[in-house]
Every structure is written in structure tokens, then in C-alpha cells.
């Protein structure tokens, strides 16, 4: 006859075996890695040349169409700064520059355009605060959101110092620039870079020794946004004014 002790002993053994089996299946049954593209060989970022940006908004429209971004929300946008010699700068971005800037800036003030997007920080606050591991830095350096895993708690939206995240009203999950991950992993450039008429935006791969970024960085001074946040942004700005936040 089975005693209570036997019941616990056998039951316990069975439970441990079952969990070990499930864990083993978890380890060995992982999804196969994608064919030609090797994540370890890439470290993506972007170079933005302020002196080439004409504020046409082509990048904003392209991003919106490529990624089905809901109306009124932006994964990338363009700001126009008007910086007086004294006092606060004025920053505009009518509808994210979806239709460019219909009205010209005043001629007597320094003014310029600043395209913005997720900085794909190497040490990003948004990834650190996610309570469920729904947002992460991929092995090739892109900050992504797992739409099926996101709870929509908005913690990351608050944590991003650059205001690059929003809660998608259609999916109720956090949404942001993916650096067109579906394009760059098959050899295309991002939708914004593809459509930038002056080459103000360049997709760069810091791990590719043949990428022109290395030559560019040797000869030019670049800056990142809010360096004091120590987020290590991988979007580099050339010719950036100190007034830009």
C-alpha cells in the first residue's frame, strides 16, 4: 500500500522530471537562425548631416507609408529650429513635417532643420525599464519592441529622453522606429534614407569596415543628442547646433 511519504516522493520525482524535460525542450527546440544575415556582423546606426537637410519631410512620409504609422503619430519627424542670438530657441514641427514646412522661417534669425528618430542607444533607458522584456536591444544594435509581448504600460514611453516612443492606438502596444529592421536585414536601406533627396540621412553599419562612416568620422566632427544622458546613441549628427535638445 502507498504511504503518504511514498506519494510525496514519487510525485516530487515526477514533477522534477517533467520540468527538466520541459526546460530541455525549451533549449533544443529554439527557432532556427535566419539564413544569410548574421546579426553578429552588424552594429547599426545612422548619420544625419544637418547641413544637407532641407526639411522636405520625405523621410516622414516614407516612414509612415513603409511602417503603417497611424495618423498623428511619428516614428521619425523633422524639427525646425529658430535660434536667436539671445533667448530661447523656437522649435516647430507642423504635423511632424509630414508635408514639409509650408511657411518659411524668418530671414533675420539663424534657422535649420533637425530630423529626429530613435537613437538606438547602446545603453537605452527604455530597454532597462521594460518590466516584461518586450523591448530590447537586438544583437545587431537595433532597439525593437515585441508587439506580442508588450503590455502597453507606457513605462518606456516615459523613460525615453528623446521622446521617440508612443503608444500605438491600433495595437495598444509601445511603438517606435525599428530602423526598418525588415529592410536592413535583407540588404536594403531604411525607408527614410531611401527617400532622403539630399543624402542628409545615411544608414551606417559600425561593424562593417567598408562602410563610408569610418572615413567620415576620421575627418568630421559629430555629436549625439543629450550626451549627458549617457545613453550612447548610435544616431550621429554632423554640424549640430548647441541649441538642439
Amino acid at each position: 500500500m502507498m504511504t503518504r511519504r511514498d506519494l510525496f516522493r514519487i510525485g516530487g520525482k515526477m514533477l522534477v522530471l517533467a520540468s527538466v524535460g520541459a526546460t530541455l525542450e525549451e533549449i533544443t527546440g529554439a527557432a532556427p537562425a535566419s539564413e544569410a544575415y548574421k546579426m553578429a556582423d552588424h552594429w547599426w546606426g545612422m548619420l544625419i548631416d544637418i547641413d544637407k537637410c532641407i526639411g522636405c519631410g520625405n523621410c516622414v512620409r516614407a516612414c509612415s507609408k513603409e511602417n503603417n504609422v497611424p495618423n498623428g503619430y511619428f516614428r521619425t519627424w523633422v524639427e525646425r529650429y529658430e535660434v536667436p542670438e539671445e533667448g530661447q530657441p523656437k522649435v516647430e514641427s507642423p504635423d511632424g513635417a509630414m508635408n514639409g514646412f509650408p511657411l518659411p522661417a524668418p530671414a533675420n534669425v539663424k534657422s535649420f532643420f533637425v530630423p529626429k528618430l530613435c537613437n538606438h542607444c547602446a545603453d537605452s533607458p527604455c530597454v532597462q525599464v521594460c518590466p516584461v522584456g518586450a523591448t530590447f536591444l537586438s544583437p545587431d544594435g537595433v532597439v525593437l519592441v515585441d508587439q506580442t509581448y508588450c503590455l502597453g504600460c507606457r513605462y518606456c514611453v516615459q523613460a525615453c529622453p528623446y521622446g521617440c516612443r508612443f503608444l500605438n492606438p491600433e495595437t495598444n502596444t509601445a511603438d517606435k522606429c525599428t530602423l526598418c529592421y525588415h529592410r536592413i536585414t535583407q540588404g536594403l536601406t531604411t525607408a527614410c534614407c531611401e527617400n532622403c533627396p539630399t543624402g542628409a540621412r545615411q544608414l551606417v553599419d559600425f561593424k562593417n569596415p567598408k562602410d563610408p562612416i569610418h572615413e567620415f568620422l576620421r575627418h568630421n566632427k559629430v555629436q549625439v543628442l543629450k550626451p549627458y544622458m549617457a545613453t550612447e546613441p548610435k544616431v550621429k549628427y554632423h554640424d549640430l547646433d548647441g541649441a538642439v535638445r
Binding site: A31, T135, D146, Q147, Y181, H182
Partner: peptide, 11 residues
């Protein structure tokens, strides 16, 4: 600390 299959899904 995330779902590895999400990468393939996004691609």
C-alpha cells in the same frame, strides 16, 4: 531578456 523569435517576426 526577451523573446528571440520576435526578431524573426519583425523581419
Amino acid at each position: 531578456h526577451y523573446r528571440g523569435a520576435a526578431l524573426e517576426m519583425i523581419r
